[in-house]
Structures are given as structure tokens and as C-alpha cells.
Design a protein around this nucleic acid. Structure first.
Lengths: 161, 161
DNA sequence: TATTGTTATACTCTATAACTATA
DNA sequence: TATAGTTATAGAGTATAACAATA
């Protein structure tokens, strides 16, 4: 018995395992930190996106976050119902919606973004500050490597936030 | 317009965003690499686990990988149908199953584990070897920090692989 | 004819609860 | 009574397809 075939077969060292569990833990911490503000991590992502300089259209926002447009509709429905964003038809192209943060949306954004950062610090707690920064940079390099910023609109997209 | 509120609000720098997208890319690479062997990444995880020194029971295996026992049943059903594992009742406690790799299971494990490692190298390609190693270690420290190895059997479990 | 937002539907994944057989 | 494995059901999350308005 005990036929271990070398350290290469340790499941809990696989990169996929590590990423999945790290992400799951991050999700848990986000949920905990954001609960008081009645937004979830993905909704906060949308708020952050709208606060930036690239609101343009719903579809653009959807691609930017990596969800399809029907999911974005649902996300914005929720946020609009909570009074955090407003939608109105674009004057220049009336097929499009201009989506903007409301005043409460901006307040919620500020408060929940801060809580979200605390959650990230909590995940990184076991690392010293330098390693934490390295981790962020390494992940950023990996993610931007194949998916250059705001890629091809026609490219098939996989789920994410 | 263009009311950007500082770099702290860049969605694509959020840790959750980075982890989710890195994991999604890893999943894509695994799927691509493992397709020829007719196993997916999670099934390979089970094969690796069984090859190790801790097969004991299905429930033990399930906890180890972070899925619940009903999902493990389904996973093993699939693997058994493919002829990669065998199940037989444990002589000492006939409620339990002893799960073992078949000969083909071992062959498939070797080949697909190797392909899986290539997929991981592909994800890490944009990093130099040292940074890649740092990334693995940092993630491992984060993941093992709150979830010490083979935790409490009664603890509620969240999805993962 | 193509595109945006929307709605409705179907599908995948996973957890929950209920059943059996053993202990 | 409690536990391992199994089965059936239900729920969340997401993608696919179809539709209306506009370009």
C-alpha cells in the first residue's frame, strides 16, 4: 500500500486546485465584507466600472467584466431596483442605454469598495506585503497575457467576474 | 465626465477578478490538454488522489478534494464507466467502498498528469521560473492558511476542486 | 441586414433531502 | 442511533435563442 508516485501527484499542489480554492476563499471573504452594503462582489464590479471613464454601452461593460449581455441586463436590473444606477436611452444612438451611478450608488460604491479592499487584505494576510504585491502582479501578468484588455467583440466569452 | 476615482477602482486589478480569470484560463488550458485522454481536470484530481496513500473511503476522498459525497459518487460512476477505477465493498466495514485505480486508470493517470503539468506551464509562461515558483508558494500559503489540510468532517464545505 | 437591449427557455452544476444497508 | 453510499429533487447560475426597436 501507500503507492505514492512522487510529489508531482499531490492534488493540493496543482495550480488549478490552488487557484480554485484561493478564489473560493476570496469569494467567501467578499461576501462577508459586502453583506452590510447589500451588494455582491460582481455588482460592486459593475459599480466600479461605471465610476470609471468607460461606461459607453451595456455591451461594452459586459465584455469588460467578462459576462454576456443578458447577464449584464439582469445585473443592471438588480442595481437599478436598489436605486444604485440609472438607465436612459442614448440620444445619439437610441438602441443603446447610458448607464450611470446615482448619488446613493456613488455612496455605496465608496463604502463597499473600501470593505472589499479589506477583504482582499484579509486573504493576503498570510503573506508579507512584498509577496502580496508580487502575487497581484504575477496574476495580472497571467491574466493580461492572452486577454489583451478589451478584446475582440466577437470572441466567445467564458464566465467570470 | 471621466470621473475616475483613483487606481483603487480599476476592476481588472481587483484580486477577485484576477483570481477568477486566472482560474478560468487554467480551466481552459486543462480542458484543452486533457481532451485527448477523455478525462477532465476534476476527474484527474480523483485519479491522483487514489494513486496517493490516502484512498480509504469515498467520503474521505470527497472531503480531500472539496466536493460533497454525492458529487463524489457521480465522479466515481463516470470513472468506473470509463474503466479507470474499480469499487468493491470494504471487508472490514461493508458500508464503505474501497476504490482503486485499474491498470488503464494508472496509464491514463500518468499520461494525463503529464499533459496537465504542461497546461500549468502554459499558464505560467508569461512569468520567469522564479516568479512562477513564488506564485505557487504564495497561493499554497493562502489556501492552507485557513483550511488546514484535511479539516473537520462536520464543517460545511464550499464548492471547489 | 446588423446591432442593442430585452425576455424566455434550457442546460449545467451542485447542494439538500430522503432511502438502504450496514454498524 | 449513526454512518457510507446511493438516488431523486430542487436550486442557483449561466448560456442560447427568439423578439422588438433602432440603425
Amino acid at each position: 500500500m501507500s503507492n505514492d508516485s512522487g510529489p508531482g501527484l499531490d492534488v493540493s499542489r496543482r495550480l488549478g486546485y490552488l487557484l480554485k480554492h484561493a478564489q473560493a476563499e476570496m469569494a467567501r471573504l467578499y461576501a462577508e465584507a459586502l453583506a452590510p452594503y447589500d451588494v455582491d462582489a460582481r455588482e460592486l464590479g459593475v459599480l466600479m466600472l461605471l465610476a470609471g471613464h468607460e461606461p459607453s454601452s451595456q455591451q461594452h461593460a459586459a465584455r469588460r467584466i467578462g459576462v454576456d449581455r443578458t447577464t449584464m441586463v439582469m445585473l443592471l436590473d438588480t442595481l437599478e431596483a436598489k436605486g444604485l444606477v440609472s438607465r436612459r436611452p442614448d440620444a445619439e444612438d437610441r438602441r443603446r442605454n447610458v448607464v450611470e451611478l446615482t448619488a446613493t450608488g456613488q455612496d455605496t460604491l465608496r463604502a463597499s469598495a473600501s470593505a472589499s479592499e479589506a477583504a482582499e487584505r484579509a486573504l493576503l494576510a498570510p503573506l508579507d506585503p512584498q509577496d502580496a504585491q508580487h502575487l497581484r502582479e504575477a496574476l495580472h501578468r497571467i491574466v493580461t497575457h492572452r486577454a489583451p484588455a478589451d478584446a475582440d467583440p466577437h470572441a466567445p466569452r467564458r464566465a467570470a467576474t
